Amino acid sequence: MTEYKLVVVGAGGVGKSALTIQLIQNHFVDEYDPTIEDSYRKQVVIDGETCLLDILDTAGQEEYSAMRDQYMRTGEGFLCVFAINNTKSFEDIHHYREQIKRVKDSEDVPMVLVGNKCDLPSRTVDTKQAQDLARSYGIPFIETSAKTRQGVDDAFYTLVREIRKHKEKMSKDGKKKKKKSKTKCVIM
């Protein structure tokens, strides 16, 4: 069974824990209790493949930012979460993405942009803004509501699919490099 290491990042209060708990335990946590770091595991079937999701729910508070490099190193894919009623959390996505790329030393890291709290009427981040940002990053965008469960499975499952595509691409690139290195030079 394939294991996928997913990391949920975003500013404090955007609903990272609520999304994760909704996926794992099928219930909505409405009281806000700032996370330092929590880890969850769940076995699911995605596109006919049974897999184990190892999900790291991270601290959004700035005082825990020193811990970010460590979990970013171990993560295979990242859910970059903002709240649709919090423009600052949307603007912060850029910083999370840049930090992930720096730590992973790669421009090509599996990510999904997630606009959470889409059940709320007080939207300050337009869907088109988020779609445009995701398009500019070359990553999928999904709106979710941890409260109603809308888009929750889709967000995590899409990230797994992005990781699969990335692994497939990397193995193809690896095979191309191996083929090239088999060419021999004969000096007579």
Rank of each mutant, 00 (worst) to 15 (best):
S17F: 00
N26L: 05
K42M: 09
E3V: 07
L19D: 13
I36S: 03
Q43Y: 06
L56T: 14
S39I: 10
N26A: 14
L6N: 01
P34S: 06
V44K: 13
T35S: 03
R41A: 08
V9Y: 09
G10F: 00
A59P: 15
L6H: 02
E62C: 09
A59C: 11
G15I: 00
T35E: 01
V7M: 10
H27D: 15
G12H: 08
I21S: 09
D38F: 00
F28V: 04
E62T: 10
V14F: 09
D30W: 08
Y32Q: 05
Y4C: 13
Y40H: 02
P34K: 06
D38S: 01
P34I: 04
D33K: 02
A59H: 04
E31R: 04
E31G: 07
D54E: 13
V8P: 01
E62G: 12
P34D: 02
D30E: 12
Y40K: 00
V8R: 00
E3W: 03
S17I: 02
G10Y: 02
V9P: 02
T20N: 10
K5Q: 07
D30G: 11
V8S: 03
V9C: 08
A11M: 14
E62D: 13
I21L: 12
G60K: 04
H27V: 11
E37H: 05
G13W: 08
K42W: 06
T35C: 00
P34N: 03
G15E: 00
A18N: 11
A11H: 07
K42N: 13
Q22W: 10
E62A: 09
D54H: 05
G10T: 00
S17W: 00
L23I: 09
G13F: 12
Y4A: 08
I24G: 15
V8L: 09
K42Y: 08
S39E: 06
V14T: 13
R41I: 07
Q61R: 08
G15L: 00
G12S: 09
E62N: 10
T2G: 12
L23T: 15
E62W: 07
F28D: 02
V8F: 03
A11R: 06
H27R: 06
D30R: 12
I46P: 11
D54F: 02
I55H: 04
G15H: 00
T35H: 00
Y40C: 01
C51W: 13
R41N: 07
E62K: 08
L6D: 00
L53N: 08
K5F: 01
T58H: 03
C51D: 08
V14Y: 07
E49W: 05
G12C: 09
G15T: 01
I21Y: 09
G48T: 09
Q43N: 12
D33W: 04
G60L: 02
G12I: 05
H27G: 15
D57M: 02
I36F: 10
E3F: 07
G60W: 03
I24Y: 10
L53F: 11
K16G: 05
Q61H: 12
V9T: 05
G10P: 00
I21H: 10
N26C: 08
H27C: 15
E63I: 03
V44N: 13
I46T: 11
T58K: 02
N26W: 06
D33H: 04
L23P: 02
V14G: 12
E63M: 05
A11L: 15
V7D: 03
Q43S: 13
I21V: 14
S39D: 05
Y64Q: 14
V45H: 09
E37T: 02
Y40D: 00
V14C: 12
L19F: 12
L52C: 15
E3H: 08
D57K: 00
Y64D: 15
D54W: 02
T2D: 15
I21R: 06
V44H: 12
D30H: 10
L53C: 08
V44Q: 12
G48E: 11
E49F: 05
V14A: 12
